[in-house]
């Protein structure tokens, strides 16, 4: 996935140079602001303006941004209040969802990388398991919820299971592709210096497959965040998904919009965290 870096156009030197040139760092910061911060600000501002105009018409179904902020100010101002039960601040709601994602996703990482290594290493395992993976990975997250509720008899583990089962497939598949694509030369190097199985795994296999593994992990974390909101709508309790559902049932449209905004930001941050980790681990050889 590429970032939003834009190609910097070649500019002609301005004929009338400023008499006192700005210090270098400041000029670079100013240029960074112009090229990277300004465009999204302008576009977002324009869209907000259009929304404001559309929302302020008489009889509009959705509130304009100004009204959203005004109605949800209490939620924005005190994200950490706790009145007991489901009546807690939006930060607690998000944290509850994140906790579920953390459990489910961690399990998916362990199982996904493990199974991916197995399938990448053994052609027999690949032939046996691949058809299963290919079919199961197309099952939508929510379709797993009833069966996991039936199995676990409880909402909490069911939600975690749904996260797990949603995010595990891209991790398995990408890991196995990464393992299968390790160049023969690396294997030969390992054979010449006589690395044993464990050393080969740690020193060659994981780093060589890391770019693939991390792109799987990144897709996985995105999918698990997609799934948590849907799952929580159904299982209830504290969590941003149920918060949205609850707001809908009591017609607090502004709360829904605020929650969507928060979900988006958190999802974006999760993606960036995994991408950053990948960059750190693969020393920039990852496609992240």
């Amino acid at each position: 996935m590429n970032t939003t870096d834009t190609v910097e156009p070649i500019r002609l030197a301005t004929p009338a140079a400023p008499p006192t040139p700005l210090p270098d760092g400041l000029r670079r910061a100013a240029r960074g602001f112009m090229t990277h911060v300004l465009p999204p600000l302008v576009i977002t501002g324009l869209l907000l303006l259009i929304w404001e105009l559309l929302g302020s018409r008489p009889g509009a179904a959705l509130p304009p941004p100004s009204k959203v902020v005004q109605e949800t100010w209490e939620l924005i101002a005190s994200p950490f209040y706790d009145n007991g039960g489901n009546d807690v601040g939006i930060a607690w709601q998000l944290l509850a969802s994140l906790k579920r994602v953390a459990y489910g996703y961690s399990l998916a990482v362990l199982a996904g990388v493990g199974l991916g290594v197995l399938v990448g290493q053994s052609t027999w395992a690949l032939r046996g398991l691949d058809p299963l993976f290919q079919v199961l990975r197309t099952v939508p997250p929510l379709a797993w919820l009833p069966i996991s509720l039936a199995g676990f008899q409880d909402g909490q583990p069911s939600a975690i299971f749904v996260i797990f089962i949603t995010s595990v497939w891209p991790i398995i598949i990408n890991t196995s592709i990464g393992i299968r694509n390790i160049p023969d030369d690396y294997r030969n190097v390992a054979r010449v210096i006589r690395l044993n199985g464990l050393e080969y795994f740690g020193q060659i296999m994981l780093p060589a497959a890391a770019p693939f593994i991390f792109s799987g992990l990144r897709i996985g974390v995105g999918l698990s965040w997609l799934a948590i909101v849907a799952a929580e709508m159904l299982i209830g309790g504290v969590g941003i998904g149920f918060f949205i559902w609850d707001a809908w049932n009591s017609s607090r449209i502004s709360d829904i919009i605020l929650a969507l905004f928060c979900v988006g930001i958190v999802g974006f941050l999760l993606d960036r965290c995994v991408a950053f980790l990948g960059k750190l681990v693969t020393r920039g050889t990852s496609a992240g």
Partner: peptide
């Protein structure tokens, strides 16, 4: 390692 090999394409580990 008693028959160390220099590969045509160097085969250094990029990480």
């Amino acid at each position: 390692p008693d028959r160390a090999l220099v590969f045509q394409n160097h085969s250094l580990l990029p990480w």
